[in-house]
Simulated scan of single mutants.
Amino acid sequence: MTTLAQTKDLFRNAQAVCFDVDSTVIREEGIDELARFCGVGDAVAEMTRRAMGGSETFRTALSERLSIIRCSREQVNKLITNHPPHLTHGIKELVDRLHQRGVKVFLISGGFRCIVEHVAAQLGIPAHHVYANRLKFYFNGEYTGFDESQLTAESGGKGRVVALLKKTYGLQRVVMVGDGATDMEACPPADAFISFEGNVVRHQVKENCLWYVTSFTELLRELEKI
């Protein structure tokens, strides 16, 4: 059984750190922001609440919400331009410090790649370190669906991404940081999980993890202990 001390040691000596995006790296939930921008915020929020009950698979819940939003490519681009995601305080400094130490940083999200790549660019994270869902559009820009072949489009997908990263890069010490149950479930194969409670408190996650933080400054301070 891993202890809190061992979890902190794994973080200080990690070869890679994987971050969830919505309500972790950024303050918002991307799909809810997109729904509000497209004028269907209330309907999608209600579906999100039902999905949290666990009665549906992630893919089904995502498909149902997107079928209501039906965003065009133009709407997505306008959302990013007019209402860009807000980075959580301290995340830029933390990612910079991890990069300085030679630690690989990945973003693993159940959200949309077109938005997550924008976040990654702000943080200096290369696009090939982004794992997220891809929206699909017709040539005229109308919504046609999403790429169901992506690992992040299915339940347990974040864990599968972590396993892929460990195999691809030969990683032995990988830490997952996030606010939700899907992030906690990625450990294992992640070697440690840190619950981030700085934007939203998920009591079920907080109560079942060894280490939770409310600020990325706490993780920066932990790195300085070496």
Score class of each variant (00 low, 15 high):
H99C: 13
Q150I: 02
R50Y: 07
C114A: 14
Y138M: 06
G157F: 00
G110N: 03
T57M: 11
G141N: 07
V161H: 02
G90A: 06
L87A: 07
R113V: 11
K136S: 13
A186M: 00
T7I: 10
I115L: 15
R221F: 12
S23G: 01
D179S: 08
T88R: 01
S63P: 01
D20A: 05
K104Y: 15
V44N: 01
I115W: 02
L171D: 06
G178D: 06
I80H: 06
F146C: 09
T60D: 06
L79W: 06
I91W: 02
I68V: 15
F11V: 05
F196T: 07
T24F: 02
L4T: 13
V213Q: 04
I108A: 00
Q122T: 11
E142L: 09
T24I: 05
V95T: 06
G157I: 01
S109E: 02
P85D: 04
Q150R: 12
L220W: 04
K136I: 14
I194Y: 02
E207G: 03
A192H: 04
P85C: 04
G180N: 03
S67M: 12
L87D: 07
T60E: 15
S109P: 02
K8G: 00
N140W: 05
L107W: 00
G111S: 10
I108P: 00
L79E: 05
L98C: 12
D42C: 13
A120N: 06
M52P: 05
L98F: 08
L210D: 05
G178Q: 07
E117K: 08
A163P: 08
A16N: 07
I69N: 00
G180E: 04
F58V: 07
N133I: 04
V76N: 03
L87V: 11
D32V: 12
V119C: 08
A45D: 13
N13D: 13
T24C: 11
